[in-house]
Each structure stands twice: as C-alpha cells, then as structure tokens.
C-alpha cells in the first residue's frame, strides 16, 4: 500500500508530482504544500482532486481540515503540530479519513485512542524532504512498534515514512508495517512515472512471497 506525498523539485510542480504518481499507478495521494498560501493550495487541491477522481485514487490533504471539508477531499493528514484529531473529527464527521503522524509507540497509541484511521510513522531514516525531523526509527523501531501494537490490540494501519527507497520496502513490510509513504525517491528518479510503477510492482510482489 503506497501513499505518494506531493512535493516539488526544480523540474516538477506539486501538480506534476501528483500527475506522475497517478500515471505510475499510485492510488493514494497526499497533497502536502508546506508554506503555500491558502489560495494557491486551494487551486492545486481542486485540480489534484480531479486527477485523483479520474484515477479512482484516494485523495487526502495535509493539515488543512477546512479545505478538506470545503472541496470534499477523502481525508486529512495531521502532523504533530496540526489540529488535534478529535477537533478534526468533530469538524469533518465520520465520512473522512483522518491520518496522524507518530514517532513512537506512545504517539501511535495516543492517535489510535483519539480515533485516527491510519498512522504515518517515521522517519525511517534521515531525509532532506522534510525539515525538523524527530529521531530516526529504522527497522528495529518499526519492529518494536508493531510488536507493542499487537500486544495492546491496536489494529489501525501504520504507514512507514521518511527517506524510504525501493530497496527498503521489502524489509519494512517484513516488520508488519502496512504501507509505505514516498515522495523524494520517486521525484529524484530519472523517470518518475516508471519509478512509481516499479515501486508498486515491488510492493505487490512482496505480498506473494
């Protein structure tokens, strides 16, 4: 299960990145536009949502609960410094996916208790895509979080995030983590669409082994 998180580079705009991810077969997109104005974000979001609908992809937006509600996106991803989950749930109601960011098992448990639908857990390793990161988790970090989740019967999906490349995917899935969030590794590839396709095939083939 792959989530693509939008980003921009010298070559590609946010919207380009979403378009390429969808073309490569990704069916779960998070629009993240750090430091963008609300008007800029709204216009990109509307277009990204249209592309996702055409592709039957799930479309969620980072942080901006009001925008999610306004345009009827599929959900929101809340970072640690964003709106609390209960508040977002109160505004959005039950018909929206709410994801949260975790760095430790305690974060995961807190998010679970507050009613998130999935958790983005990381960073796996150091990444330049995001500033102000928490300590890195590595494979051992994921193993220990998955074990403790099982012990406490916490059954929400956890998506690994942060500096993940193709080579890491099989090992991360082996820890019991449900999915992978990617951004930089796709956009840095020579052919991002092909890279996305390769990553999705890699993940799907992992399931058969």
């Amino acid at each position: 299960m792959l989530q693509f998180i939008s980003h921009y580079t010298e070559k590609y705009t946010y919207l380009d990145s979403v378009r390429m991810a969808l073309e490569g077969g990704c069916r779960w997109v998070q629009l993240r536009m750090k430091d963008a104005s609300i008007d800029e974000m709204r216009s990109v979001a509307v277009e990204a949502q249209r592309l996702c609908k055409e592709a039957n992809a799930t479309f969620i937006i980072d942080d901006n609960v009001a925008l999610v509600k306004e345009i009827g996106a599929d959900g929101v991803h809340l970072g640690k410094k964003d709106m609390p989950v209960y508040e977002a749930r109160h505004i959005l109601g039950e018909g929206f996916i709410i994801g949260g960011t975790a760095n430790t098992f305690e974060d995961v448990k807190g998010l679970y208790l507050s009613g998130v639908d999935y958790v983005g857990c990381g960073p796996f390793r150091f990444t330049t895509t995001k500033k102000g990161l928490s300590p890195i988790l590595g494979l051992d970090g994921y193993r220990s979080i998955v074990t403790r989740m099982r012990e406490e019967n916490i059954d929400i999906p956890v998506v690994a995030i942060g500096g993940i490349t193709a080579e890491d995917i099989p090992e991360i899935l082996d820890t019991g983590i449900s999915g992978i969030a990617l951004s930089g590794t796709v956009l840095r590839a020579d052919e991002p669409v092909e890279e996305m396709r390769r990553l999705i095939d890699l993940e799907a083939s992992k399931a058969i082994i």
Partner: peptide
C-alpha cells in the same frame, strides 16, 4: 464499512471501490 472515508488495500495494493 461506510460509503465514504474508506480506503482498502489487498496484498499491498490499493483497490478502488469500483473494483
């Protein structure tokens, strides 16, 4: 499962509701 606000993956692949 509700009509909205659900995403499902099977064997690591997202499956749109239409499928």
């Amino acid at each position: 499962l509700p009509q909205k606000g659900v995403a499902v993956a099977v064997d690591n692949k997202m499956i749109p509701r239409a499928e």
